[in-house]
Amino acid sequence: MPSPRYHREIPARFRLEAGKCAGCGRVSYPARKVCPACRGQEMEQVKLSPRGTVVTSTVIHVPPDDFLNEAPYAMAVVETAEGARFMTQVVDCDPSTVLPGMEVDLEFRLIRKEGKSGILCYGHKGVPGSV
């Protein structure tokens, strides 16, 4: 990932900053300019709580080259208490146990490396919930 793009995405990736529509209250992660629910354009910044529930999941056995050594790994669509949904990996557990309904905490992790000498790209992954 080129550094300028990565830099732009830091607030969302590092701090789970999202946008909440002032009109209808829909939370979009990452924040958008236009609310996908009501097309409102007035957004306030909110932070997602660092936990959520798995909506649907899979275990990737055939990964892209950048993730070759991590396979098999679980990926899930996670929904937070604010109603925002996003995709991420769920780690630190047997990937086959990552199923819809699972509660996860979101931890700060290294997501990908830009090869051997490129930048390191961080973000949040799910881990089995602590409560």
Binding site: I60, D66, V77, M87, Q89, I111, R112
Partner: peptide, 30 residues
Amino acid sequence: TGVLATASDQEQEVYYGVTFPGLYALIARA
């Protein structure tokens, strides 16, 4: 696998290591 994945959301899906079979697997499980 990497090329096909660019048809999904580069910033929100590909970044985290999803593949096209992975996306349809998520649909399948749902």
